[in-house]
Design a protein around this nucleic acid. Structure first.
Lengths: 159, 159
DNA sequence: CCCTATCGTTGGGCTTTCCAACGATCCAGT
DNA sequence: ACTGGATCGTTGGAAAGCCCAACGATAGGG
């Protein structure tokens, strides 16, 4: 049998795979007391890591553009992160409209924690592949993702 | 410096990429009159193609299990597809609880249409890679997806 | 014949995502 | 110095997707 389960352009299938990963991550994270107590949502970790990996403390708009998150949604995510003590909002002295978002030591520690959880999820999803193939897949994915993070919206809001 | 733009387990980044693809597909599909008139939503096409590619006319439960879609959500998607004339719900004579969902000729034609749109989206997303790398990536993704379609829930509702 | 399980369906709740508008602040031109 | 337009963060609400609980209709086993 084997009736062509997925065809050439697996667009919606990949979308579904992404949703599955997000949900799996959310479920695993719900078991971590430190995350639940702080009210951390899945999106918080994307933001936290973007803040930590960026060279300089970015503004919220720069964060939103990089991650493709609407600035209005970023507010709530940063509120949670700041309440948890993982980031700090400081006024940019050069432009007092902006906040310079900086990660704290606790924030860096939290990143290590949740990356362990992410690794578990990745094992569940990519574990079906041989190690070499898995490495190849992850490398290619990172290339695609970083290419689109650099500011190229795919098909959406071209105002 | 070189602060690791994306780390080893790109879990949330892949989730975001999937969301971007879904949205891009939705936007492109909103420009197609035949799709808008029928009220087709992104999920409809996953279902339609699953019905068409399956060997025998599946039941709605089988469809939901295969695609990871809740049976309750499948109802609305099939309602739209049936109203558009792309599928037909026939009572399974052997078990009158079940519907045997069959694709129509119009449905097959619609699949060709929307797969062209999906190819456009795939070009936008994967076009940043060299053709050989893109082919490798798509092959590996298909392998991962099919492996999880065969009935292995990743992290969520494992009863 | 009865009791349990399954199928499709309905309804509701939760989360994420997107969009419009508003005060505060910066910048350019006069 | 003042003013008009643009940008930043924030608020509020709308829309869509996903998941769970419950219900009638039907099938199957004791």
């Amino acid at each position: 049998m084997e009736p062509q389960v997925t065809d050439a352009p697996p667009v919606l299938a990949l979308a579904r795979l992404g949703a599955v990963m997000r949900r799996a991550f959310s479920v695993r994270m719900a078991e971590e007391a430190w995350a639940v107590d702080a009210g951390l949502r899945p999106g918080c970790f994307s933001v936290l890591r973007a803040v930590a990996t960026g060279a300089t403390a970015p503004s919220q708009r720069a964060l939103g553009d990089q991650l493709g998150i609407d600035p209005s949604d970023l507010v709530g995510l940063l509120d949670v992160l700041e309440a948890a003590g993982y980031v700090e909002r400081r006024r940019d002295p050069a432009d007092r409209r902006r906040y310079a978002v900086e990660v704290t030591d606790d924030g860096r520690h939290a990143i290590e924690q949740f990356e362990g959880v992410a690794a578990t999820v990745a094992d569940d999803v990519f574990g079906v592949l041989a190690p070499a193939d898995r490495q190849t897949l992850e490398d290619l994915l990172v290339r695609v993702i970083t290419a689109h993070e650099d500011g190229a919206a795919v098909g959406g809001s071209s105002s």
